[in-house]
Design a protein around this nucleic acid. Structure first.
Lengths: 234, 234, 234, 234
DNA sequence: CATGAATGAGAGTTCATTCAT
DNA sequence: TATGAATGAACTCTCATTCAT
């Protein structure tokens, strides 16, 4: 339901002087990521971000060391969101195939939303080597997670034997392509697309004997309020 | 075999004053696209390109009107390459599934190479509206082509009934993700990866009865020497 | 007396960080117009202007959108100056001939000074079409004003019947030529030249019976401190 | 009648390889001066000139050392044209007032044409000091010539006593203003305007007793075919 | 004679970033 | 805390000018 957090709500964060600084950081990120998605990171100037927030450019420097840190923080939020969801699926009791389906569904929803979209569209080449290393490690974790689901599926017979690495890659790639394509506010909601994706992509994966797949309902993801520098869920 | 054209060969194009100007244009594009891939378009300055070619920056303006035209021309080359290959597959006699497999294989090889990679990684949002329109029309053609293969497959029974739009999207997405991931000079050649991709991705698509798929051998793509303004194969 | 505002006074405007921004805008214009007059607009680089103000080039962009806006603003100032003076003469009670004389005198002084000089020497072809339209409309107003004075003079018998359009044109042309010729700091002050111009040019215009013309004393023009975008006296 | 030399005629000069080089120089100047007038010297690139002549940029360097020399040569042509006409008037037998009228008429026609217009509109500040000196000396001669006519008029009683310097300046200024204003191909021909100017401007100058002025008919000026480097009529 | 190709110098402009307040 | 002002570094692009052919 909640879906995209309201941009206006974020502007409000800057309305009062005294106010939760974390909320303001949030607001900056939320605004930034939307412009990044709309125009691309390099074509977005800090002035663009500041103007939309109705603050001044130097004010941004109070919350972030520089432009790259905003970029990185958006990236981190995207990753954290994903990790969050994966935790739920990991702990779910069910067949490997179910978990794979859950992964696809959850991940799709994330990728259709702001931070996930940014995560997937914006290349991590553009980060500094240090930041890149950090981010890639996290991305790899996500990939490994999906692979483990597939492997579990092969082990428990719900998934047809296959080249795990390649399949994992293909599934993720299919979902990623959504980031370019999906337009929020279009005919289908993110959840609807996600459900269809989960169905379709797992079809080819399922072992013949398996009946129609029941995808467990992983509730929608909440954006964690805080995520201070350096710290990151793993 | 040939694979990536040798960068040094292109440097040579500028060795003599008087020489095939098309070769020089080629050389600029080839060099530019490599740097674009390496560092991203926005982080690449024309000085970077010029320096690598051992010419001066304004010399580039002798061959291209501006930076965006270089960008666009790289894009066009990527698209033309793809269209080229699709033509071969379209005219191939075989089941829909075979064509899909052919598409995946061919497209994968292209996406693992310079211009294809650029095409897939660089967002077309960044082009001017006019250029964007041109490019998107071509991209849509490619997508439609893949869909028609799938539909043919469903019609001839080689492909399991499915949501064509979604499947087409997923297949393309899977291949695209390769652009980020594939490192030329790595353990696997582009062709090897392509073959594996074609096998794996079509597995889930094939109708049960179908025996192991025989993927026809579509010979490697040649980069067409010239590709003058405006002209483009469709 | 005051006459040309002191360039050094303007440099002072940038001495302090925090200071009347309008004063700084003023200072930029004053400095720019002087260099424009000295070397011509096209041979003047923004670096020239900045250097003379002892600031850096991009600082100029804090006050003006681009070079043309500086140009245009100088133009506007020249026009506003003229309009200002004309208002006084329009409201003056006296014969048409007296008003013509007043026009010549006042206009001459303006044309001998910075902004007026710039206005007259620099071609408005060089402005963007939009700016050109704006500026030409104002110029036409000035021309019409002079014509109305002449017509009044003919009506009240102080001016000999003549081709109004041509005479108006010639008078203005005569004054304009001063912009090229007059060197501030030369033997004659602008006011002296102006008085002589007013006498000489009206001599041929006066009806025979009229005794020696008494030119009313229109006090020297003050440069209005502010002249914000878009606003302009008419 | 002849009026503006035909631009197409000049293009023809470059049609054949072997051909009068002076004719080609002519053609360059004629074309250049037209573009200069249309867009201004600084906004005109040598490419513009070359393109209009359907030759290449470096070819211009065969005929002229650099851009400034083209500029200067246009200037020289304008001056030579004027000098040419003045010679005729100087040798004319008649009152001073008649000569003044003749000056105005002749000069007006010149100023309404290409080279004269350029001469008057384009500032000589833009020339190198050396060229400036040359040109200004010539301009001064023209001014002196007009003054001598006025003085002769005062001496022979045809002109009312006046401040010669100022009147001479005003007359010239009035004519100059035409350069900005006159549009060839408009309602009035240059000759018509010239006649009217001569009438109007001398009216105020004439002594009362003088009857309607008869302006002698100085035939239209021919553009001298050749005018090689450095040489100039005085 | 003329051209295609290339260059060097410089222009205007943008923008992340930093002070001083 | 937040801002107005300013900067430095970079970038794209233009253009007069010059070779080599």
């Amino acid at each position: 339901m909640a879906g995209q957090p309201d941009a206006l709500a974020h502007l409000a964060a800057f309305a009062d002087r005294r106010r939760d600084p974390d909320a303001k950081k949030q607001a900056v990120l939320q605004t930034a990521v939307q412009i990044f998605i709309e125009k691309g990171y390099w074509q977005t100037s800090l002035d663009d971000v500041a103007k939309k927030l109705k603050i001044t450019k130097p004010a941004l420097y109070y919350y972030f060391r520089n432009k790259e840190e905003i970029y990185l923080e958006c990236y981190r939020r995207g990753i954290a969101l994903t990790q969050h969801s994966l935790d739920k699926i990991r702990s779910h009791q069910g067949s490997g195939l179910e978990k794979v389906a859950g992964f696809i569904q959850t991940y799709t929803v994330i990728v259709a939303r702001d931070f996930g979209r940014f995560l997937v569209r914006q290349d991590d080449r553009e980060l500094s080597p240090k930041a890149q290393a950090e981010v890639r490690a996290e991305k790899r974790k996500i990939d490994h997670c999906l692979r483990s689901f597939i492997e579990q599926g092969i082990a428990d017979g719900s998934v047809r034997p296959c080249n795990v690495r390649l399949v994992s890659f293909s599934l993720a790639g299919a979902v990623h392509s959504l980031a370019t394509w999906f337009e929020p506010g279009g005919a289908l909601t993110a959840e609807e697309v996600a459900a269809e994706f989960a169905q379709t992509l797992t079809q080819g994966l399922a072992n013949r004997r398996s009946a129609k797949l029941r995808i467990p309902d992983f509730e929608p993801i909440q954006i964690p309020a805080k995520l201070s520098h350096g710290e990151m869920r793993s």
